[in-house]
Nucleic acid binder design. Structure first.
Lengths: 294, 294
DNA sequence: GTATTTACCTGACTTAAGTCAGCTTTATGA
DNA sequence: TCATAAAGCTGACTTAAGTCAGGTAAATAC
């Protein structure tokens, strides 16, 4: 390779600024200055609180106020005082505003499609984009508690099954693998953690109480796009915090010899290998960790 | 996957605009407004002609003039009338300008490094970035004639050898594969084409005269980052043009059964399979194409 | 040689964006 | 209860960016 790493990185910046610079200026096509358009779009994307908007767009309080006034007199947004704190204001789109917002959405979609459509290996490209976006947005990764039946959790779990099936060469059967029923992985019996990076589900991890002070960690999965960012470690740490809150003192988990990265993680974070404790045919290694009560 | 293709694409735009927006505003740290800084950087990157600068930065003639005046009074650039056309002006950095420019370079490198350094699978990330940048900059791909010993050609050829070695599971031996010596692939006996995308070598293709009006196509390679963009077809078309200019009427090439994409390309673009014409142990299929003289 | 075009420059202007001090209203803590 | 802080608004300002109509000098066309 004749280009060094930094040059390759900066090559991406150039490509995207050229491209998204065009995207930004396409926003001018609807007659609003960019600042006003940005505010309208942020509101359309669900930001409601004025303070939240200001932080997100990094705008001065006075400027923000004026931009909101512009949109208000145009009739695309409506503001009212917050119920909880009458000093704060909440903003929402009017019917007209929804309409205007959808025009911007359409523009963005068009420009995305125009790039995607002229490239034949779409999935390869999208996976590369997922990876780049996730690494760049690394600081925005959010871990939250979600319901086991949340579609975002489901998509992670499905990806987990697919991956295991691929590694083992046979269809992974979740029942054989000891799939805990959903109830076991939501409060009060357990918890299911979901990691999101700007709308994309990139990882999950579940905890179920086994009885008494014993818990089991299940469904630990991190998307290929998010590997190498220390996400599994973060998920593990959070799961342990939840375990302590549930009053658990011992955690167990099983894993396979082929998942070497996972095993290294467990070994380096206080888990020790123990005897087989279940009859999961996919598992070859069993680990245990004692938790200090909070 | 809960996100559709367009959302995944737009996720990248957001990530990079946030990131490179930060990059842009980091340029403000040196005290110059962004417009002036952009002009300085474009000059540092080798743009010399005022008209070229204006087209590249998409600036109005008057505004451009004023920005240049600002930089000139600051002492970082010098302008003079062009030797060929005294109406035109050429710009260059002064010693002070070089110094200032290198500060911006340093800033860009720092911000690139700060992202790269906190991610463990650097090569995977860079390959994803190569792909994304190449697809976005698809319209900027340039095919030029290069010397067989040009380091950019060498890096392509090395990648070609590595890939073939991987596919065949053994070390590919270029001598067994009938590597034509460099002289055979430069004028007047042949040609070596190089495809570049914003500084990154992404493909090559060589032509050597076999004697009389017979030529052979060798070293056709396209980087994984550029597959699916129709680059191999473009390379093939250009090689045929060069072949005609060299007075060749028949082209031959050999390929392996494992390179199915290559074979499909040949079959769909006027090549027909022929008998083995050499003793290259890596080759299993042989093709020929007759050219209509120009 | 003269008319036209081209490349760049200058001055006068508009708009967008951002800053800052001070204001009102509401919440909060001693 | 009263001082203080917080959230948002308004007015006055600055700077950056961009537009446009001329203007000059050089090149090119007729």
């Amino acid at each position: 390779m004749t280009l060094d790493q930094i040059s390759r990185f900066r090559r991406l910046s150039r490509a995207v600024t050229t491209q998204t610079g065009a995207l930004d200026s396409s926003f001018l096509g609807l007659g609003r200055p960019l600042g006003v358009a940005r505010v309208l779009n942020a509101i359309g994307q669900g930001k409601q609180d004025v303070a939240e908007l200001r932080a997100y767009l990094q705008l001065d309080s006075g400027l923000m106020s004026r931009l909101l006034r512009t949109l208000e007199t145009e009739g695309v947004i409506a503001t009212k005082a917050s119920d909880l704190d009458a000093r704060r204001r909440v903003v929402c789109l009017t019917a007209l505003g929804e309409e205007e917002f959808s025009k911007y959405e359409e523009l963005s979609n068009q420009s995305a499609l125009s790039v995607l459509s002229r490239y034949s290996q779409t999935e390869v490209l999208l996976e590369a984009m997922d990876l780049v976006a996730t690494v760049l947005g690394r600081d925005q990764i959010e871990i939250t508690v979600a319901d086991p039946e949340d579609p975002r959790i489901q998509s992670c779990v499905q990806a987990y099954y697919d991956e295991i099936s691929e590694i083992f060469g046979t269809r992974f059967d979740p029942v054989l693998g000891g799939d805990p029923e959903a109830d076991a992985m939501r409060a009060p019996r357990g918890v299911f953690l979901l990691a999101m990076s700007d709308g994309l589900p990139i990882g999950c991890c579940a905890l179920k109480r086994q009885g008494g002070a014993l818990g089991e960690v299940k469904r630990m999965w991190v998307s290929p796009a998010a590997r190498g960012l220390g996400l599994s470690k973060r998920l593990m740490t959070e799961i342990e915090t939840h375990a302590r809150q549930l009053g658990l003192t011992t955690l167990q988990l099983d894993t396979n010899g082929k998942l070497t990265a996972a095993r290294r993680l467990y070994e380096s974070s206080g888990w020790r290998e123990i005897e087989r404790y279940n009859d999961n045919p996919y598992a070859e290694h069993f680990f245990e960790k004692h938790l200090d009560p909070a």
